[in-house]
Design a protein around this nucleic acid. Structure first.
Lengths: 346, 346
DNA sequence: TTGTATGCGTTATCAT
DNA sequence: ATGATAACGCATACAA
């Protein structure tokens, strides 16, 4: 006896399709899931029935049966940050190649929101999580992790908690700084790249430091801004730049933690009546779209976002459908220096 | 025989809890779902077992059985727009009162993304949808709607397709415009409120028009900007304001479609060396947080966001658990004029 | 290549 | 107040 107490929309199921097509439910499943050993005639019949009845598989049932939903979550600190928005787009595409659907969540860099990803209601609908962690400590992450296949994204130093993909931040900052050296700059400042800030900033600071050392230039503390908790936005970049502009022999170049800060810095430089790159050259990191169209356009380190995304998704998918116990992998994505007007000769 | 082919994490189920507590599965469900007729002793035993085993109900099974997941989606054009961010926060709270979880989706004002809300994988996990529609036509919406309980949000004119909550845009614009009249302004311009733009803009234009008529002031076409597809952001406001500043007798006040545009307009006015409100008074709509802290702070129409959110959620919940056939309701939320520096006497 | 039978974890029906 | 049991819709082991 059917329990149609709930006045829900009656959905057609495998059974109805099977009856309509004159086959068994098993065959319908085979067709739906692209199983290869199905007679062409049968497949056609079934597909027509599916079409006519408007059949759509019930994902709750599928998940209950298989433990899979083919949905994953991408959780980033801030969806509106262009870098994350661009990475998100690539993740969508990479996931689509595995026929996975992606849910986006914003953590606001809050530990509580990050924790909720593992424990909340939506965690039950998803097969895995790609997280750009900020708030959670390593210990918490390690504890939460077994709940859900997990791939970590970004610059954070992680003690091999889970699969992790990022560019080599030290090398990236070194290349960027070295570029400034090569165009003849000597008083090179750094915005947001600070040893005492968050781990990504610390790594980039090390690259900055290394490049200067190679060039035989001393690091001048007054040219390094960026305190813990500083906001890594246009506003933050503008504020830090204003501070740097108080130096007497002005800096002749600035390495910025990211493009957003670089754009803020450029605006501040222009506001002060100075020219970019003539007076001060500026280099950012991330290669966000805004930087291509800004005036002047922005020299930057371009992480291979498509590669990052596809590695992250591949790692996650193989965790989901493969070995959950093998040791976490640490994978480095590529990057390249993109020279634009903010540091070009003319 | 258990089919443990998949190496998934073995989760404890109702059965194990029941065994551990020495009761039947039925009783465990009763405890979990807060059913009242459970002996206190039994409840305690069960709760302890749940605790010890770390039991968490399987939502896929629950949804399969009941057709409910207690998850809804809020879909807005742009999550980064402060107005939507603030509404989202209220929706979260309202939903929590019904113990619903909220998923956020961004449509980018794209019809395709809006359509996907009804047909995509996630639509299967949710019980209902709160949508601020932009891209979809009324006909499409009408066709898609039966799939999923739906509440429409915002200013769009809808032909009674689904439950709909919004403020009275005509009245709101009239109140705002009238305020400008009352502080003595006569050359009142409008930014983004245009009869030929999207429906929300058209409604607000009608209010603007009505208020001027009541005051015996003629509408001057050169003081009305806002073409279809104009972007309703700071940038858009600044651009439109620049255009208005080309008028010879300058406007002495501006009504803006929203606060974001108003903030852009203010910046443009100040850039031109004029004073707000002395030379030009500015009024926005939405009452976003930025407007409280801007210099000058922003006079605005404050929609009751908490009310909008709670009405929207209530409507949706009652659709989900109640009658899906009764005619769509059109509900008006309250608003009030908040006078701040951008239009205050001194 | 396709059919039959079974169980995923829950909630609902019926009984006690 | 609680127990036994059936069904939600699907995918799989096994059989044919």
């Amino acid at each position: 006896m059917a329990t149609r107490k709930n006045s829900r929309i009656p959905r057609v199921g495998l059974g109805e399709v099977a009856k309509a097509a004159g086959v068994s439910a098993r065959t319908v499943t085979n067709v739906v899931n692209g199983f290869e050993y199905v007679a062409d005639g049968t497949r056609a019949k079934v597909q027509r029935a599916i079409e006519e009845l408007g059949y759509r598989p019930n994902l709750a049932a599928k998940r209950l049966r298989t433990g899979r939903s083919e949905v994953i979550t991408l959780a980033v600190p801030l969806v509106e940050a262009p870098y994350f928005a661009e990475v998100a787009r690539e993740i969508f595409q990479a996931a689509a190649r595995h026929s996975y659907t992606v849910l986006i969540e914003q953590t606001d860099s809050l530990a509580q929101r990050e924790r909720h990803l593992f424990t909340g209601a939506t965690s039950q609908f998803i097969d895995g999580l790609i997280l750009s962690p900020v708030g959670l400590t390593e210990e918490e992450l390690r504890e939460l992790h077994p709940e859900l296949p997990l791939v970590l994204l970004g610059e954070r130093i992680t003690g091999h908690i889970a699969d992790h993909v990022a560019i080599d931040n030290v090398a990236a900052a070194r290349v960027a700084t070295n570029h400034l050296v090569e165009i003849g700059r000597r008083r090179i400042a750094a915005i947001g790249c600070h040893p005492l800030s968050h781990s990504g900033a610390a790594l980039r600071y090390r690259g900055y430091q290394a490049a200067l050392k190679e060039a035989g230039i001393a690091v001048r503390p007054e040219l390094v801004t960026g305190k813990p908790g500083e906001d890594l936005t246009r506003q933050g970049g503008a504020t830090s730049m204003a501070q740097l502009l108080a130096n007497d022999p002005l800096p002749d170049a600035v390495l910025c933690y990211n493009d957003l800060m670089a754009l803020g810095a450029i605006r501040m430089i222009l506001t002060h009546g100075l020219k970019v790159p003539d007076d001060i050259a500026v280099v950012g990191m991330d290669d966000i779209e805004d930087g291509q169209f800004s005036v002047p356009s922005l020299t930057t380190i371009a992480p291979d976002k498509a590669q990052i995304a596809s590695i992250a998704v591949d790692l996650l998918v193989s965790r989901i459908s493969g070995d959950r116990t093998k040791p976490p992998q640490e994978i480095e994505a590529g990057f390249r220096l993109v020279v634009r007007e903010s540091s070009s000769g003319r």
